[in-house]
């Protein structure tokens, strides 16, 4: 029956579609990577291999702007992801280990609000809000906006992980005279760690990638990488933008790889259903 079982799973045509899907996903990225090594300034003519655009990113006339944008982007992403992960971990504990209570549905809706409200609406609403309360737009406005909309992204993997952890672990710890804080710190938290790491990385990437909200709430002279890149690509794609993109892609791959291995080590404990 094993043979039949394999057979029943396979549908002809699904593999070519999968390969097509990957080609579609990667073709534009490949183009970016290839042309980032183009000697020519033109994006339409290939004139031989060169690293000069990578050099240009670091020492060219726009390097100061991109350096500052990169510092802003990464610092905002790190702080926003840390804050969002802490808030989400705390919220997940409250939601999943806090028994049932009135307003639980509302609380769940609130946590997921940034996913439900279309980004352009959040962006405009935040803009109106900041301008109404006279909160001067700048680094801080970007940061708080990012913390808020990163929360559900951090929450998803953390809650999924927590759901997969039986409460017998904490119960056992408490039976052994651990208090609740100790049970959380020494038992629950280590078990949740893979989910927390995934949540952090997801929040980090979401923050790093965000353009629409940032574009609306950023203040004078403050750029993040996406807004700086947008400003530059609107006038046509230049090879230095492609070089930056390729480097960002490399950073992202490293991040995803880390989360993959952390997730893998977590799997040894227990694989919660549906978690990737």
């Amino acid at each position: 029956m094993a043979q039949a079982g394999e057979d029943i799973k396979n549908y002809p045509g699904f593999m070519p579609i999968t390969l097509f899907c990957l080609v579609v996903l990667y073709a534009p990225l490949l183009v970016v990577m290839i042309y980032s090594f183009n000697e020519s300034k033109s994006i339409t003519v290939w004139q031989g291999l060169s690293f000069k655009w990578y050099v240009d990113v670091f020492v060219g006339p726009e390097s100061a702007k991109f350096k500052e944008a990169a510092i802003n982007s990464f610092s905002i992403a790190i702080v926003a992801a840390l804050a969002a992960t802490a808030i989400a971990t705390s919220a997940a504990t409250g939601m999943l280990r806090g028994g049932s209570f009135r307003g639980r549905g509302f609380s769940f809706g609130l946590i997921n609000l940034p996913l439900i409200v279309p980004e352009i609406v959040t962006a405009v609403a935040t803009l109106i809000f900041f301008s109404a309360i006279d909160f001067e737009r700048g680094y801080l406005t970007i940061l708080v906006a990012h913390i808020a909309f990163c929360i559900p992204f951090a929450y998803m993997p953390i809650a999924a992980r927590m759901q997969g952890i039986e409460d017998t672990y904490e119960q056992a710890a408490m039976d052994l005279y651990a208090n609740k804080t100790q049970a959380f710190r020494l038992v629950l938290f280590p078990l949740m760690l893979p989910g927390i790491v995934s949540g952090f990385i997801l929040a980090f990437i979401i923050s790093l990638d965000d353009f629409i909200i940032t574009n609306f709430v950023k203040g004078a002279g403050i750029e993040t990488l996406p807004t700086a890149i947008f400003g530059a690509v609107k006038q046509g794609i230049k090879p230095n933008i492609m070089a930056i993109s390729t480097m960002l892609l490399a950073v992202s791959i490293v991040m995803v790889t880390i989360s993959y291995f952390v997730g893998k080590s977590g799997d040894k404990l227990k694989q919660p259903p549906g978690e990737k």
Binding site: M95, G99, F129, D167
Partner: peptide, 25 residues
């Protein structure tokens, strides 16, 4: 919710998310 281990701390645990999301979204 699977358990109510942290029932007493629930409000405190949820408060940061309520505040941030309530205030900024």
């Amino acid at each position: 919710a699977q358990t109510d281990t942290y029932k007493e701390a629930r409000t405190l645990l949820l408060l940061p998310s309520w505040l941030v999301l309530g205030f900024f979204v």
